[in-house]
Amino acid sequence: MANENSNNKKTMNRRIFMKNAGIFTGGVVGGSILGGILTNPFLKEESETPQTTTESASDFQEARMFFDRFEDFVILRAAVERIYPEDDNGPGAVELGVPYFIDKQLAGSWGTNAKEYMQNPFKVNGDTDDDEVMRYETPLNRGQIIIEGLRKLDVVSEDKFDDKFSNLDGEQQDEILQLFDNGEVELTGVGSQHFFSLLRKMTIEGVFADPLYGGNKNMDGWRMVDYPGPRPGFIDIIEEEEFVKMEPMGLNDYQQS
Protein backbone atom coordinates (compact mmCIF):
# COMPACT_ATOMS: atom_id res chain seq x y z
CA MET A 1 0.00 0.00 0.00
CA ALA A 2 2.90 2.32 0.65
CA ASN A 3 3.56 4.73 -2.15
CA GLU A 4 7.02 4.12 -3.58
CA ASN A 5 7.16 7.48 -5.25
CA SER A 6 6.85 9.29 -1.97
CA ASN A 7 10.02 7.61 -0.75
CA ASN A 8 11.89 8.45 -3.88
CA LYS A 9 11.01 12.11 -3.94
CA LYS A 10 14.16 14.11 -3.88
CA THR A 11 14.68 17.73 -3.15
CA MET A 12 15.70 19.13 -6.48
CA ASN A 13 19.21 20.45 -6.64
CA ARG A 14 18.91 24.18 -6.60
CA ARG A 15 21.81 24.79 -8.95
CA ILE A 16 20.28 22.68 -11.69
CA PHE A 17 16.96 24.27 -10.97
CA MET A 18 18.27 27.79 -11.41
CA LYS A 19 20.17 26.80 -14.51
CA ASN A 20 16.92 25.79 -16.10
CA ALA A 21 15.18 28.89 -14.92
CA GLY A 22 17.02 31.28 -17.23
CA ILE A 23 16.87 34.05 -14.71
CA PHE A 24 19.04 37.14 -14.69
CA THR A 25 19.34 39.64 -11.94
CA GLY A 26 20.00 43.30 -11.74
CA GLY A 27 18.70 44.49 -15.04
CA VAL A 28 16.97 43.93 -18.29
CA VAL A 29 17.59 40.75 -20.17
CA GLY A 30 18.38 41.49 -23.77
CA GLY A 31 16.28 40.94 -26.86
CA SER A 32 14.07 38.02 -27.66
CA ILE A 33 16.75 36.05 -29.47
CA LEU A 34 19.07 36.03 -26.45
CA GLY A 35 16.25 35.10 -24.06
CA GLY A 36 14.96 32.49 -26.45
CA ILE A 37 18.26 30.72 -26.92
CA LEU A 38 18.87 30.60 -23.21
CA THR A 39 15.53 29.14 -22.39
CA ASN A 40 15.01 26.99 -25.46
CA PRO A 41 17.99 25.25 -26.99
CA PHE A 42 15.98 24.26 -30.07
CA LEU A 43 15.00 27.75 -31.02
CA LYS A 44 17.89 28.35 -33.37
CA GLU A 45 17.11 25.30 -35.39
CA GLU A 46 13.46 26.23 -35.59
CA SER A 47 14.25 29.76 -36.72
CA GLU A 48 16.00 28.36 -39.76
CA THR A 49 12.80 26.86 -41.08
CA PRO A 50 11.09 29.23 -43.52
CA GLN A 51 8.95 31.86 -41.81
CA THR A 52 5.96 31.10 -44.01
CA THR A 53 5.70 27.54 -42.69
CA THR A 54 5.47 28.80 -39.11
CA GLU A 55 2.82 31.32 -40.03
CA SER A 56 0.58 28.93 -41.85
CA ALA A 57 0.97 26.43 -39.00
CA SER A 58 -0.43 28.93 -36.53
CA ASP A 59 -3.14 29.97 -38.96
CA PHE A 60 -4.66 26.51 -38.76
CA GLN A 61 -5.78 27.32 -35.24
CA GLU A 62 -7.48 30.52 -36.30
CA ALA A 63 -10.81 29.13 -37.32
CA ARG A 64 -14.14 29.17 -35.56
CA MET A 65 -15.37 26.16 -33.60
CA PHE A 66 -18.00 27.87 -31.47
CA PHE A 67 -19.38 30.77 -33.48
CA ASP A 68 -21.52 29.28 -36.24
CA ARG A 69 -22.37 32.59 -37.83
CA PHE A 70 -19.56 34.69 -39.17
CA GLU A 71 -21.70 37.79 -38.46
CA ASP A 72 -21.55 37.06 -34.74
CA PHE A 73 -17.78 36.81 -34.91
CA VAL A 74 -17.60 40.16 -36.71
CA ILE A 75 -19.51 41.82 -33.88
CA LEU A 76 -17.27 40.11 -31.35
CA ARG A 77 -14.12 41.39 -33.05
CA ALA A 78 -15.40 44.95 -33.07
CA ALA A 79 -16.52 44.82 -29.44
CA VAL A 80 -13.36 43.33 -27.91
CA GLU A 81 -11.20 45.87 -29.75
CA ARG A 82 -13.13 48.69 -28.06
CA ILE A 83 -12.69 47.01 -24.66
CA TYR A 84 -8.94 46.62 -25.18
CA PRO A 85 -7.95 48.89 -28.08
CA GLU A 86 -4.65 49.11 -29.89
CA ASP A 87 -2.67 52.15 -28.73
CA ASP A 88 0.87 53.41 -28.15
CA ASN A 89 1.34 50.78 -25.44
CA GLY A 90 0.91 47.98 -27.93
CA PRO A 91 -1.56 45.80 -29.82
CA GLY A 92 -5.25 45.62 -29.11
CA ALA A 93 -7.52 42.63 -28.51
CA VAL A 94 -7.92 41.67 -32.19
CA GLU A 95 -4.22 41.63 -32.96
CA LEU A 96 -3.63 39.63 -29.78
CA GLY A 97 -6.02 36.92 -31.00
CA VAL A 98 -8.72 37.56 -28.40
CA PRO A 99 -11.68 36.72 -30.70
CA TYR A 100 -10.24 33.25 -31.36
CA PHE A 101 -9.39 32.86 -27.70
CA ILE A 102 -13.04 33.55 -26.83
CA ASP A 103 -14.23 31.18 -29.55
CA LYS A 104 -12.10 28.36 -28.12
CA GLN A 105 -13.14 29.07 -24.54
CA LEU A 106 -16.83 29.04 -25.39
CA ALA A 107 -16.46 25.81 -27.36
CA GLY A 108 -15.06 24.05 -24.29
CA SER A 109 -16.33 23.06 -20.87
CA TRP A 110 -16.29 26.62 -19.59
CA GLY A 111 -18.59 27.80 -22.35
CA THR A 112 -21.11 25.07 -21.57
CA ASN A 113 -20.88 25.58 -17.78
CA ALA A 114 -19.86 21.94 -17.38
CA LYS A 115 -18.64 22.39 -13.80
CA GLU A 116 -21.38 24.75 -12.65
CA TYR A 117 -24.63 23.93 -10.91
CA MET A 118 -27.29 24.43 -13.58
CA GLN A 119 -30.35 22.84 -11.97
CA ASN A 120 -33.76 24.49 -12.01
CA PRO A 121 -35.38 26.59 -10.72
CA PHE A 122 -33.52 29.74 -11.77
CA LYS A 123 -34.27 33.19 -10.53
CA VAL A 124 -33.64 34.82 -13.89
CA ASN A 125 -31.42 37.80 -13.47
CA GLY A 126 -32.83 40.53 -15.64
CA ASP A 127 -32.03 43.41 -13.34
CA THR A 128 -29.01 45.62 -13.29
CA ASP A 129 -28.06 45.56 -9.65
CA ASP A 130 -24.31 45.42 -9.31
CA ASP A 131 -24.41 42.62 -6.76
CA GLU A 132 -26.46 40.45 -9.05
CA VAL A 133 -23.79 40.37 -11.73
CA MET A 134 -21.65 37.94 -9.83
CA ARG A 135 -24.53 35.72 -8.76
CA TYR A 136 -25.22 33.55 -11.73
CA GLU A 137 -28.98 33.15 -11.95
CA THR A 138 -29.78 32.31 -15.55
CA PRO A 139 -30.37 28.99 -17.30
CA LEU A 140 -28.24 30.30 -20.19
CA ASN A 141 -24.71 29.01 -20.33
CA ARG A 142 -21.83 31.34 -21.13
CA GLY A 143 -21.85 30.55 -24.83
CA GLN A 144 -25.54 31.38 -25.03
CA ILE A 145 -25.08 34.59 -23.05
CA ILE A 146 -22.39 35.80 -25.46
CA ILE A 147 -24.48 35.00 -28.56
CA GLU A 148 -27.52 36.67 -26.99
CA GLY A 149 -25.53 39.81 -26.18
CA LEU A 150 -23.59 40.09 -29.44
CA ARG A 151 -26.72 39.87 -31.57
CA LYS A 152 -28.37 42.47 -29.39
CA LEU A 153 -25.41 44.79 -30.00
CA ASP A 154 -26.37 44.80 -33.68
CA VAL A 155 -30.04 45.32 -32.89
CA VAL A 156 -29.29 48.33 -30.70
CA SER A 157 -26.83 49.70 -33.27
CA GLU A 158 -29.41 49.53 -36.05
CA ASP A 159 -31.90 51.16 -33.74
CA LYS A 160 -29.66 54.03 -32.69
CA PHE A 161 -27.38 54.57 -35.69
CA ASP A 162 -29.06 52.71 -38.56
CA ASP A 163 -26.06 50.52 -39.12
CA LYS A 164 -24.42 47.32 -37.95
CA PHE A 165 -22.26 47.55 -34.82
CA SER A 166 -19.09 46.72 -36.72
CA ASN A 167 -19.69 49.58 -39.18
CA LEU A 168 -20.01 52.27 -36.49
CA ASP A 169 -17.13 54.52 -35.55
CA GLY A 170 -15.34 53.90 -32.26
CA GLU A 171 -17.19 56.49 -30.24
CA GLN A 172 -20.56 55.20 -31.36
CA GLN A 173 -19.50 51.66 -30.50
CA ASP A 174 -18.40 52.79 -27.05
CA GLU A 175 -21.73 54.51 -26.51
CA ILE A 176 -23.57 51.28 -27.24
CA LEU A 177 -21.26 49.13 -25.17
CA GLN A 178 -21.73 51.56 -22.29
CA LEU A 179 -25.49 50.99 -22.44
CA PHE A 180 -24.86 47.27 -22.02
CA ASP A 181 -22.37 47.88 -19.23
CA ASN A 182 -24.95 50.06 -17.47
CA GLY A 183 -27.54 47.31 -17.71
CA GLU A 184 -29.80 49.52 -19.82
CA VAL A 185 -30.45 47.01 -22.59
CA GLU A 186 -33.00 44.24 -22.25
CA LEU A 187 -31.79 40.76 -23.17
CA THR A 188 -33.62 37.46 -22.89
CA GLY A 189 -32.72 35.44 -19.84
CA VAL A 190 -29.83 37.56 -18.63
CA GLY A 191 -29.00 41.14 -17.72
CA SER A 192 -27.00 43.13 -20.27
CA GLN A 193 -24.53 44.02 -17.53
CA HIS A 194 -23.91 40.33 -16.93
CA PHE A 195 -23.25 39.83 -20.63
CA PHE A 196 -20.91 42.79 -20.75
CA SER A 197 -18.97 41.82 -17.68
CA LEU A 198 -18.50 38.32 -19.12
CA LEU A 199 -17.30 39.79 -22.43
CA ARG A 200 -14.93 42.14 -20.63
CA LYS A 201 -13.58 39.35 -18.43
CA MET A 202 -12.90 37.11 -21.41
CA THR A 203 -11.28 39.94 -23.34
CA ILE A 204 -8.83 40.62 -20.53
CA GLU A 205 -8.18 36.89 -20.19
CA GLY A 206 -7.51 36.65 -23.92
CA VAL A 207 -4.99 39.47 -23.68
CA PHE A 208 -3.08 37.98 -20.74
CA ALA A 209 -3.63 34.20 -20.60
CA ASP A 210 -0.81 31.95 -21.71
CA PRO A 211 -0.60 31.97 -25.53
CA LEU A 212 -1.45 28.26 -25.52
CA TYR A 213 -5.11 29.31 -25.42
CA GLY A 214 -4.92 31.28 -28.64
CA GLY A 215 -4.80 34.83 -27.27
CA ASN A 216 -1.86 36.93 -26.01
CA LYS A 217 -0.27 36.35 -29.38
CA ASN A 218 3.47 36.22 -29.38
CA MET A 219 3.22 37.03 -25.64
CA ASP A 220 2.72 40.67 -26.62
CA GLY A 221 0.04 41.07 -23.94
CA TRP A 222 2.65 40.12 -21.35
CA ARG A 223 5.26 42.39 -22.92
CA MET A 224 3.03 45.41 -22.43
CA VAL A 225 2.89 44.87 -18.68
CA ASP A 226 6.43 43.49 -18.31
CA TYR A 227 5.17 40.09 -17.20
CA PRO A 228 7.88 37.44 -17.57
CA GLY A 229 5.57 34.42 -17.89
CA PRO A 230 5.80 31.17 -15.94
CA ARG A 231 9.26 30.50 -14.56
CA PRO A 232 10.69 28.04 -12.08
CA GLY A 233 11.27 30.90 -9.68
CA PHE A 234 12.32 34.43 -8.90
CA ILE A 235 14.37 33.77 -5.79
CA ASP A 236 17.37 35.69 -7.14
CA ILE A 237 15.43 38.89 -7.72
CA ILE A 238 12.86 38.84 -4.94
CA GLU A 239 14.96 41.20 -2.82
CA GLU A 240 16.03 43.37 -5.78
CA GLU A 241 15.24 47.08 -5.33
CA GLU A 242 15.09 47.82 -9.05
CA PHE A 243 12.43 46.49 -11.37
CA VAL A 244 13.77 43.55 -13.33
CA LYS A 245 12.47 43.20 -16.84
CA MET A 246 12.74 39.87 -18.60
CA GLU A 247 11.91 38.59 -22.01
CA PRO A 248 8.74 36.55 -21.46
CA MET A 249 8.60 32.80 -21.64
CA GLY A 250 5.46 30.74 -22.21
CA LEU A 251 4.24 27.40 -20.94
CA ASN A 252 5.47 25.73 -24.13
CA ASP A 253 8.99 26.62 -23.00
CA TYR A 254 8.42 26.03 -19.33
CA GLN A 255 6.79 22.63 -19.59
CA GLN A 256 9.67 21.35 -21.71
CA SER A 257 12.39 22.55 -19.39
Partner: peptide, 12 residues
Amino acid sequence: GEKLSQCQFCSY
Protein backbone atom coordinates in the same frame (compact mmCIF):
# COMPACT_ATOMS: atom_id res chain seq x y z
CA GLY B 1 10.86 12.31 7.38
CA GLU B 2 9.05 14.13 4.55
CA LYS B 3 11.30 16.41 2.55
CA LEU B 4 10.26 19.83 1.33
CA SER B 5 12.24 21.96 -1.11
CA GLN B 6 13.22 25.58 -0.73
CA CYS B 7 10.60 27.99 -2.11
CA GLN B 8 11.75 29.68 -5.33
CA PHE B 9 9.18 32.51 -5.18
CA CYS B 10 7.67 31.41 -8.48
CA SER B 11 4.29 32.90 -7.42
CA TYR B 12 2.14 29.87 -8.20
